[in-house]
Structures are given as C-alpha cells and as structure tokens.
Amino acid sequence: VAAEDPAANPFTAKTLDEVLKLINATDSKPSTDIQLKAPEIAENGAVVPLTVSSTLAGITGISIVVSNNPTPLAATFTIPEGTSADVSTRIKMAKTSEVIALVQTKDGLFSAKQEVKVTIGGCGG
C-alpha cells in the first residue's frame, strides 16, 4: 500500500467499489467456511468487536470492510505460516451497515457478511 499516494490508498478510499478495486477484491465467492463474529446490534458504534476466522486451506490474508463507513476499509491482516486464520479487532461504525470479511487463499478470494445494527437504544423488558 502506497500511503503517500492518496488515490491508491484503499484505507482513504470513500466508496465500497473503490476499496474493492484497490485491494483486488471485486470478485469474491461467498463461503460458509468463514466465521464472521460480530454483534447483531452494536453496544457502542465507536467500538464494535469483530472476529474473523476460517477453516479454508492456504489462507494468506484477511480484510474487513464496512460498506456504509465513510472509509469502508477497516483492516487487512497478513497471515504467515503458523498463524491461525483467527483475528480480532474493534472498529468504528458510523451507522447500520453490512460488515464484510474477505479471506484470501491460494485458491482465490472468499467472503462472508453480517449486518451490524447501530441503534439509538433505550427501552426494554
């Protein structure tokens, strides 16, 4: 990633399409072998815990993209040999959005999605 050239930096790209183009992820296959663990409703939009894990073979990298964020790409992880495809971090979410986990393997790019709702809260039983 050339952070110096804003046009080429996927982390400052403003749309999902731009991000996917810049990280070569326009073409991913949905996979049930990817577990994207995220709260259905965020407790705090400023701190949304995410875990991506996968049992796919030959994983080399994982990316997390938040469709409706002002800068959709949140993180990319390089997975060296010996490190599990099982990473956790916490992200900001401006509003309700689909979160996409992209998993790069030697056999191609796979993905899983989940909606995370950001709500104003209150009320209860």
Binding site: I41, A42, E43, T119, G121, G122, G124
Partner: peptide, 11 residues
Amino acid sequence: AFPYTPVANPK
C-alpha cells in the same frame, strides 16, 4: 444475561 443491556439501558 440480557444480551442488549448496554443498548437498552445506560452503558
């Protein structure tokens, strides 16, 4: 416990 306690009540 109630899963959305910090959403429905003050976190």
